[in-house]
Amino acid sequence: MRFAANLSMLFTELPLPQRFAATAQAGFAAVEIQFPYDVAAAELAAAATAAGVEVILINVPAGDLMQGGAGLAAQPRLQAEFAAALPQALAYAQALGVRMVNVLPGRLAEGVSRQQALATLAANLDAAADFFRPHGIRVVCEAINDIDMPGFLLRTADELAVLLATCNSRDIGMQIDLYHMARMQQDIPALLSKHLPAIAHVQFADAPGRGEPGSGELALRQYLQQLDALGYRGWCAAEYRPTRPTVETLAWLTTDAW
């Protein structure tokens, strides 16, 4: 199994450029970053190269989403702003060697119907796929629970699959976070079996606290072994909030644990 570390949540005891070396020392071969845009792409690329780790995924800029706003991808009035975010994401993706970018749907904006938001999101996903495809970069999209993020537009794997079926692009992948699906009380073994052909990227944390594996109630080992048995060959990214210094939460990473 291939495990990556989310540098936006792990090793946050260190500045972002220093997290690459710490990740490599801990035994990870790859990392992902939610929003790397506050640090120069060249600085991050140099740190990744020096550490010998691959950067597998970043998010497309999402406007005010992380500050509690609706974001960019599902707002009809902000399609120009979404389009303007794509070249910025491409610049970072190319500098870092990233081959996958995640478009976050965002929250349902005030004054926008759900139907309008979904239509806008589908159009923006198609635009993003067309934009990144010539560069060998795949677009994925993610459902997020609406307990942690009230008002989030897509909350389950089924909702995400229905939305992707309305897109013209057939190569947009599903990003499945086991933590978010558990918070929505989804049957995780069933959804993994149902949606495996479309799953391009997996993230995980324990629930309900979003800590490291073993800190909560999820059968993460079982779920990840199921993915392996089903033939999933993508990355599984640890995107949790460590309950202790990150290096003290990595017992799950040892080979014999899986």
Rank of each mutant, 00 (worst) to 15 (best):
F28K: 08
A30N: 06
V31N: 02
Q34G: 06
Q34R: 07
F35H: 11
F35G: 00
P36L: 06
P36N: 04
P36F: 01
D38T: 14
D38R: 15
V39A: 12
A40S: 15
A42K: 11
E43N: 09
E43D: 15
L44K: 03
A46D: 11
A47M: 07
A47T: 09
T49N: 12
A51L: 13
G52N: 13
V53R: 11
V55K: 04
I56Y: 04
I56S: 14
L57S: 15
I58V: 12
N59Q: 12
N59G: 12
V60M: 07
V60R: 04
V60G: 01
A62D: 15
A62R: 07
D64K: 06
L65D: 03
M66E: 14
M66C: 07
M66W: 15
Q67K: 15
G68I: 06
G69D: 03
G69N: 06
A70R: 04
A70T: 10
G71I: 02
A73Y: 00
A73K: 01
Q75W: 01
P76K: 09
R77L: 06
R77K: 13
L78Y: 07
L78M: 13
A80C: 00
A80R: 14
F82M: 13
A83E: 15
A83H: 12
A83Q: 13
A83S: 14
A84C: 03
A84G: 04
P87F: 05
P87S: 09
P87I: 08
P87D: 08
Q88V: 15
A89I: 03
A89V: 01
L90C: 03
L90N: 01
A91E: 12
Y92Q: 02
Y92N: 01
Y92K: 02
A93D: 03
A93M: 09
L96V: 11
V98P: 02
